[in-house]
Design a protein around this nucleic acid. Structure first.
Lengths: 116, 116
DNA sequence: TCTATATTTCGAGATATGTCGAACTATAGT
DNA sequence: ACTATAGTTCGACATATCTCGAAATATAGA
């Protein structure tokens, strides 16, 4: 299978566009369960959190944060669902798998010695 | 290990920025040895090719192509080396590994049931 | 219904990006 | 030295992106 189709190119360039902004990548990385600076790296780290929690890490205006979250969501990278007054954000694992696939495919098919 | 450091965020957001443009992602995908439309997908597909070859696939001005290649190169995604009159482009496999790592790390560390 | 909290939408300004054509540089062959 | 081929640099313009503050919407509780 090939990554080379207009659809794939457009779909994934939109995904990488969403991850191209440092603030958005920081959000995505936080949601990936990774360890914020100063915290121990353990399995209790966040895998989902509300918009306000993210805002506490980022030092940007709430409206800017909201804008970035919308971009990540539209690209299919994260899920957002309301829970009471808050909106909970989490990684979309299907898209994460698709990205991994994107960077895996070619080497599997091609990186072999040129057997006759 | 964590992806969460200013250096990593800045480094990888620059990488994703390079991949966020459809033309650049197309170039990168072509160089990944993937099959251009209409060609058979086999191990003899290109893994490196010169600037002109890429230009034949893309339908953009030579100056635009040159600009895009510089971006990919500066981000560390591809190698460029002169061979006679031509300049040969190829995937930088170290960076490809780093990207794979980036999307792998967190799940390995965190995606387990919360054992006491 | 009034208030407080959480988040989004809107409008505007500053900066970054993508694109082109024209002019330039580098290499190889005659 | 001259010519042809391969690719880059420069300057300009159009469009997209990032950011903010102010105003609006949504939910929960008194």
């Amino acid at each position: 299978m090939s990554n080379y189709s207009i659809q794939n190119i457009d779909r994934f360039s939109a995904v990488f566009s969403a991850l191209s902004n440092p603030h958005r990548l920081q959000i995505y990385t936080l949601l990936s369960g990774c360890c914020p600076p100063g915290s121990a790296c353990n399995v209790n780290s966040i895998h989902s959190c509300c918009v306000g929690d993210l805002g506490n890490e980022l030092d940007i205006a709430a409206s800017t944060l909201s804008h970035h979250l919308k971009e990540l969501s539209h690209a299919g990278l994260i899920n957002m669902q309301r829970e009471g007054k808050q909106i909970i954000c989490s990684i979309n694992n299907d898209m994460l798998d698709a990205i991994r696939q994107y960077f895996q495919v070619n080497s599997e098919v091609h990186n072999e010695p040129e057997a006759g």
